[in-house]
Amino acid sequence: MTIKTFFHGKPIEDAIECHEHVSPMSTYVTVLLALFVLTGLTYAVSFADLGPASLWVAMGVATLKASLVCMFFMHLKYDERYHVFVFLSTIIFVTIFFLFTIFDMQSRDRLNEEQGTFFRIEQGRDWSEAQRGNKAEADAAIKAAADAKAGAVPTPAMADAKAGAMADPKADAKSAAPGKP
């Protein structure tokens, strides 16, 4: 049995041995207690009136809890560095997803409000107000909105490139009624 075995392209001596890190019990218990304390903290903070800061506090505590779980329960602290890299890059891509979308949504709404081309609130409110009245009216509101969309021919205002929240009405109208001259 002199055949060398390889792992990651490097020869290793004893292929059968377990190279995992085994944490002591006390670590797990400590982490669990810390998680309970932090949960209590968010719970308590939720009754205090922190205003806009409350979201950040809650997210901060949650992130702290999450990193405890990752590092000790999921063994990321002792694990291969590449697994840490996988996890962190996931977070980075989630951040990209969030930042760009929120950035667009925020700046768009501001610009649309300036130009008075803000559709979303009004349309949703139609339905909601009808709901508050009675159910039949609500269903009618849904149906009317759906009909309006299904047979939509772009009005000049909507076809305008900056028409706000109505998604790409040009493209949709084309798929809906391209045969019409």
Partner: peptide
């Protein structure tokens, strides 16, 4: 269910769908 995330008639935002889709 018309939960109103993408559907403007229910208070959603169709451009949000496009963000999701193109991501």
């Amino acid at each position: 269910l018309n939960i109103g995330i993408f559907d403007p008639a229910m208070g959603g935002d169709p451009v949000l769908f496009q963000h999701f889709f193109w991501f």
